[in-house]
Deep mutational scan, measured.
Amino acid sequence: TYYTVKSGDTLNKIAAQYGVSVANLRSWSGISGDLIFVGQKLIVKKG
C-alpha cells in the first residue's frame, strides 16, 4: 500500500494510523531520518 504524505503529517501519525512502527515505516520506504515531504509516497505494509 502506498500512502501519500499530506501537509501536517508526521511519521508518528502515519505509523499510528496504520498500526505499524515508525522503524518499519522508515525501512519499507527507505527513509533514514524523520524528514518527510508533502507529496512523498511511503510504502505501508499492514500487519
Rank of each mutant, 00 (worst) to 15 (best):
A16T: 10
G8S: 05
N12P: 14
I14F: 01
I31V: 10
V5D: 02
S32A: 11
Q40E: 07
G30M: 08
S32Q: 13
K45F: 13
V38T: 09
A16G: 09
L25R: 00
T4K: 07
T1P: 10
Y3F: 03
Y3A: 03
G19M: 08
K6G: 07
G33P: 03
K46E: 13
S21K: 06
I43E: 07
Y3V: 08
I14Q: 00
A16M: 12
G33W: 05
V44C: 07
S21Y: 03
Y2F: 12
I36T: 03
S7D: 14
Q17G: 07
K46C: 14
D9F: 01
L35V: 14
I43N: 08
Q17W: 12
T4G: 03
K13N: 11
L35C: 12
D34M: 08
L42P: 01
N24S: 11
L25W: 00
F37S: 10
A16Y: 10
Q40M: 11
S32H: 12
V5M: 02
N12Y: 14
K13A: 12
I14V: 08
S27W: 10
S29C: 05
Q40T: 06
I43R: 10
S27Q: 14
Q17L: 14
K45E: 11
K45D: 11
L35S: 13
I36S: 02
G19Q: 10
V5N: 01
S29A: 08
I36P: 03
S21Q: 06
R26Y: 05
G30N: 12
V38I: 11
Q17E: 14
Q17C: 12
G39Q: 02
S32V: 15
A23C: 11
S7C: 13
V22Y: 02
L11N: 00
K6Y: 04
I31S: 03
V20H: 02
G8V: 02
S32N: 11
A15V: 02
K13S: 15
K46L: 15
L11H: 02
S7A: 15
K6S: 08
D34F: 08
R26L: 13
F37W: 11
G47H: 13
Y3Q: 02
Y18C: 09
Q17V: 11
I31G: 03
K46Y: 13
T1Q: 14
V22W: 02
N12Q: 15
V22H: 03
G39Y: 03
S32Y: 10
L42C: 05
L25Y: 00
G39V: 04
G30W: 05
I14Y: 00
K41M: 12
S21C: 08
K13G: 13
A23K: 09
S27D: 15
L35I: 14
A16V: 11
K13D: 12
W28S: 06
I14K: 00
K41P: 05
G33N: 10
W28E: 05
G30L: 06
L42Q: 00
G47Q: 13
V20C: 11
G30E: 10
F37Q: 10
V22G: 03
G19P: 01
K45L: 12
L42I: 12
S21I: 04
L25P: 00
L11T: 02
A15E: 01
G33H: 08
Y18Q: 08
S29H: 04
V38M: 07
G33Y: 06
I43P: 05
Y2L: 10
R26P: 02
R26I: 14
S29F: 05
S32W: 09
A23Y: 06
T10N: 08
I36L: 12
L35Q: 14
I36C: 05
F37Y: 14
F37M: 09
T4I: 15
V20R: 01
V20G: 01
D34R: 06
G19L: 07
L25V: 09
G39S: 04
K41I: 15
I14M: 01
N12G: 13
T1R: 12
S27V: 12
V44F: 06
Y18P: 00
Q40K: 03
L42E: 01
G8N: 06
G19E: 09
N24Y: 06
A15D: 00
Q40Y: 03
Y2I: 13
A23M: 08
S29M: 05
L25C: 02
N24Q: 15
G19I: 03
I43D: 04
K46S: 13
V22D: 04
T1V: 14
K41D: 07
K13T: 15
R26A: 09
G47Y: 12
K13Q: 11
G39L: 03
S27R: 12
L11R: 00
Y2D: 07
N12M: 14
K46D: 13
G39A: 03
S21G: 05
I43S: 07
Y18K: 04
V44S: 02
S7L: 15
V5E: 01
G39F: 04
K41Q: 14
R26K: 15
I36W: 03
S21D: 08
K46W: 15
Q17K: 13
D34G: 08
T1A: 11
S32T: 14
K46T: 14
K13H: 10
V5S: 02
K45G: 13
G8E: 06
L42F: 02
Q17T: 11
I36G: 01
W28Y: 06
V38N: 06
L42H: 01
R26W: 04
V38L: 08
F37I: 10
A15G: 06
D9T: 00
V22R: 03
Q40S: 05
V38Q: 08
S21V: 04
G30V: 06
K41V: 15
T4D: 06
S29E: 03
G33L: 08
I43C: 13
G33K: 06
S7R: 10
G30H: 09
Y18D: 00
K46N: 13
K46M: 15
S21T: 14
K41L: 14
L25N: 01
N12W: 14
I14H: 00
K6M: 10
I14E: 00
Y2M: 10
K45N: 12
L42N: 01
N24R: 08
A23I: 10
G39H: 04
K13C: 11
W28N: 06
K45M: 13
K45H: 13
Q17H: 11
S21N: 07
Y3D: 02
D9K: 00
K45I: 11
G39I: 03
S21L: 07
N24T: 12
Y18T: 07
D34S: 09
N12R: 12
I14A: 00
K6R: 10
Y3N: 01
G47D: 14
Q17R: 13
N24A: 11
A23D: 15
Y2W: 13
L35G: 11
Q40R: 03
V5H: 01
K45Q: 13
I36R: 00
L35W: 10
N24I: 11
V44L: 09
K45T: 11
N12T: 14
L35K: 13
Q17F: 12
I31R: 00
G39C: 05
V44P: 03
W28T: 06
S21A: 07
L11W: 07
A15H: 00
T1Y: 14
V20W: 03
I36Y: 03
L35F: 13
T10L: 04
K46R: 12
A15P: 00
T4L: 09
S27G: 09
V5R: 00
N12H: 14
A15Q: 01
I36F: 06
V20M: 08
W28H: 04
I31A: 04
V22Q: 05
L42T: 02
W28K: 02
S27H: 14
V5G: 01
I43M: 12
I31N: 03
A15F: 02
G19N: 11
R26C: 13
I43Y: 10
A15R: 00
G19A: 08
S7T: 13
A16S: 11
T10S: 09
Y2P: 07
G19C: 10
V20S: 04
K6D: 05
W28F: 06
L42M: 07
S29P: 03
D9H: 01
Q17I: 13
I43G: 03
R26N: 05
L11V: 06
S29Q: 07
L42R: 01
V22L: 09
L35Y: 14
D9I: 01
T10D: 08
K41E: 10
D34P: 06
S29L: 05
Y3M: 04
W28Q: 06
D9Y: 00
K41W: 07
D34L: 07
V20P: 01
G30Y: 07
Q40N: 04
I14L: 07
K46G: 14
A15Y: 01
I31C: 05
S29W: 05
K46A: 14
V22K: 07
K6W: 03
D9C: 03
I43F: 10
F37L: 09
G8A: 05
S32E: 15
S7M: 14
K13W: 10
Q17M: 15
D34H: 09
Y3R: 01
Y3E: 02
L42G: 01
T4Y: 13
A15N: 00
V5T: 04
Y2G: 06
G8I: 03
V5I: 06
S32I: 14
A23W: 06
S27K: 14
Y2V: 14
K6Q: 14
D9P: 00
G19T: 05
F37E: 11
I14N: 00
F37A: 09
Q40H: 04
S7I: 15
A16N: 11
F37H: 11
T10H: 04
K46V: 15
Q17N: 10
I31T: 05
L11G: 00
K41C: 14
F37T: 12
V20T: 09
T4V: 15
Y2R: 07
D9Q: 01
R26M: 13
Y18R: 04
N12K: 14
S29Y: 03
L11C: 04
Y2A: 08
S27A: 15
T1N: 12
L11D: 00
V22T: 08
K13V: 09
T4P: 03
L35P: 08
T4Q: 09
K45V: 11
S7K: 13
R26G: 04
G33E: 09
A15K: 00
Y18E: 06
Y18V: 09
A15T: 02
L42A: 01
T10K: 04
S21W: 03
T1M: 14
S7Y: 13
F37N: 08
A23R: 08
S29G: 08
Y18M: 10
